[in-house]
Design a protein around this nucleic acid. Sequence first.
DNA 1: AAAAAAC
Length: 517
Amino acid sequence: MSDIQNTPASAGSADEADITLAAPVEQVKADEAPTVRFADLGLAPEILRALTDQGYEHPTPIQAKAIPLVLQGRDVMGAAQTGTGKTAGFSLPIIQLLMAHANSSMSPARHPVRALVLTPTRELAVQVADNVAAYAKRTPLRSTVVFGGMDMKGQTTILKGGVEIVIATPGRLLDHVEQKNVNLSQVQMLVMDEADRMLDMGFLPDLQRIINLLPKQRQNLMFSATFSPEIKKLANSFLNNPVLIEVARSNATADRVTQVVYKVDEELKRDVVEHIIRERNLKQVIVFSNTKIGASRLSRHLEQKGIKASAIHGDKTQQERMAALDAFKGGAIEVLVATDVAARGLDISDLPCVINYDLPYNAEDYVHRIGRTGRAGASGDALSVYSDKDERLLADIEKLIKQTIKRGELPGFVAPSSRPHGAREGGREGGRESGRDFARDGERRGRREDAPARTDRAPRSGGYGPTPRREKVDPWFLKPYEPSSAARKETVTPTPAAKPGKQKLAFLLGGGPRNNP
DNA sequence: AAAAAAC
């Protein structure tokens, strides 16, 4: 992938009119993939050791760019999705900067909160916190995570014990602030992760409340997958002279991910999902549902059919959510049926396959969902089932990704149009199970014997539809009338893993050391 | 039209 084309001539776009940057935005330029090592980035030995412990040697492109800039104290606006390594991109330099004044005193007063990371979802908070803790494990810095749905007590104890780095969802953090469990007046660094999602979720008032509690003098890092006008406004109001770091659009729509859609009868969707899981012998797959109830039902259905499945959505207790995630990561659960709570942010290793049980109402969410696969140089499959009523959704998605998605055929599943009226046919190849009654939902049916894994997978990439084109990024940051804003711009392109062999091995081992965090 | 997030 090459760099994104942004010409100054296009800067006068319509929605830029009401955007006034508080300060000029500097852009840096770098085209080639970095061949640097973490050791070249000026990181402390304690941090390098922690990275080595985990098998990381080479930074991803965004890390190679972001780390030095953050170390310089710059505000950074990162246009990056998950899977680009942005978590390490901000946490490593934060740890480094805080280390300069770290002390090993046990006194809570000597461990004021100095870095704050805000995330939209609880799971993402936990994940970021896990990373931070791992990177900081050889330093005296303390970190913790606070989020809702859990007892306040444990979090309160840790907060009162003193921590330098807090990772939090906004609501619970404010809760702690109100209860005087935490003081944010010493925060030097603020990270807003998945800022676009936080806005979508209505966190703006909470964000403003939190920011009002912070010192004016601080460093701000903001990451967002999209550049809506709202995000630009947020960037304008909260960032000070930021550097824009841009990662070419997620590899989600890159050729590494084979996308296929299957048009089926609405009521056959769950059987099709089951069929796909068996046919491909999938052992690690996320199935996305548009609704919480749909996720639960599908999960239950799959479980009844002897597939190790579990659902994760907002109506589950936090304990259930975490248990499901852990079970999935640990392999006890093979199919995680999720709402969009898991669409973004979650770094659930490198999934070989993602299935859309429903096409998302929001085309943008499609990109986020399938971004769970084909990560970090690996290939992946993104399969979607849809029915007649979803044609419009599919059209929206294809318009967004500027790509026609391959229409797949499922041998054994009768095409919706040719299905005889009233018949409920859902058998598979060889008609082994023809005549099954698909009408009675929830009825226990005979468990299907394990089907041998077939190899007639959908063809990999290529040859179908126009060449994928990267989404045009609105050049809001170009300030044609601002002399200090040189037309330099940073575009970081994800590169294949530096060591493909090692990467592959990591995947096979399921969570072993990866090349890039 | 749905999901997420504080109690």
